[in-house]
């Protein structure tokens, strides 16, 4: 299990990296490498060139702005997880990050890299989707923001052009008065999710659900927004029955059927995690108000 030959480009600027992307037929970006290098070792990826962006200055910053958190392309999972400032502003991120693999992997793996890798069972893409976040990408055509809703195409595939590089990802602020939760089921600690649910619930002054954002990983070919569940929750009193009824609407979204039960087991897991995540989010919202 040794990588095949490739050219190595140690980019010193984003522009150099973009140039390199256009100079070879098949390139990959090396940031944390925690998904890429296994693929190289297995030779399932045999790129012409590996473009290492680890020496590009300025990409390793976390900026917090009014509750929103922007992470540069070289921000490691662990770095964000341990950032007191990011936690104070946006505690959902740490809760989700805690589910990502194991510490040695989080020490190296980057959030933007995980988003670019777009594994359908990965946590941070689902968080980005839940929060209506976006990535900033640079390519030969310049810089643009790509909303999460337009980013993920299917498992391990994004809509980005082949010469584009994600330079940052922005996780918008949690709504005022909201509660959040990230609930996940894995077969073993740190594994990719059988299903994971990201939930942000904002109760109104009457205690009824004013707004709800939910997304899931692991259940489909990409991280998905659970719009039907959200719509069913809004306006309800968030009782157990109301949440269960809404959670049942996830069933149609579950297309990943490799659970040994033709998807039925995963549907039940998704429903259960939704009810648990919503309950936890509601509890947190209530604590926030208290």
């Amino acid at each position: 299990m040794k990588p095949a030959r490739f050219e190595y480009v140690a980019a010193k600027t984003v522009a150099e990296a973009i140039d390199a992307r256009s100079s070879f037929d098949d390139t990959v970006i090396l940031a944390g490498g925690q998904s890429l290098i296994p693929m190289l070792n297995y030779r399932v990826a045999q790129p012409d060139a590996v473009i290492d962006i680890n020496r590009v200055p300025g990409l390793d910053t976390i900026s917090v702005d009014n509750g929103a958190v922007r992470v540069g392309a070289l921000v490691r999972h662990r770095q964000l997880e341990l950032s007191a400032e990011a936690f104070a502003a946006h505690p959902l991120l740490r809760e989700a990050l805690d589910n990502v693999a194991h510490i040695p992997i989080r020490n190296r793996g980057t959030i933007c890299g995980s988003i670019a890798h777009a594994d359908a069972a990965a946590e941070m893409p689902a968080v980005l989707v839940c929060l209506d976040g976006f990535v900033t990408a640079q390519g030969s055509g310049g810089e643009r923001n790509v909303p999460a809703s337009d980013l993920f195409l299917f498992h391990m595939t994004t809509t980005l052009d082949s010469d584009e590089i994600i330079t940052s990802a922005t996780f918008p602020a949690l709504p005022k008065g909201s509660g959040y939760a990230f609930e996940e089921l894995t077969r073993r600690h740190g594994d990719y999710a059988v299903a994971g649910i990201c939930a942000v619930i904002t109760p109104g002054p009457d205690g009824n659900c004013a707004s709800a954002s939910l997304s899931a990983c692991g259940i489909a070919e990409k991280p998905v927004r659970l719009s039907a569940v959200e719509a069913a929750l809004v306006g309800t009193n968030l009782s157990d029955d109301a949440v269960s009824a809404a959670a049942a609407l996830v069933d149609d979204m579950v297309t990943n059927e490799d659970d040994g039960a033709g998807g039925r087991y995963r549907r039940q897991v998704a429903r259960t995690l939704i009810t648990r995540a919503v309950a936890k989010a509601c509890q947190r919202a209530a604590q926030g108000r208290a």
Partner: peptide
């Protein structure tokens, strides 16, 4: 025994309420 096997033994039905 994998989780989906327990699920199937439980009837593969809606057990979510049991939580």
């Amino acid at each position: 025994v994998f989780p989906h096997m327990i699920f199937e033994k439980l009837g593969g039905a809606d057990q979510a309420k049991a939580s």
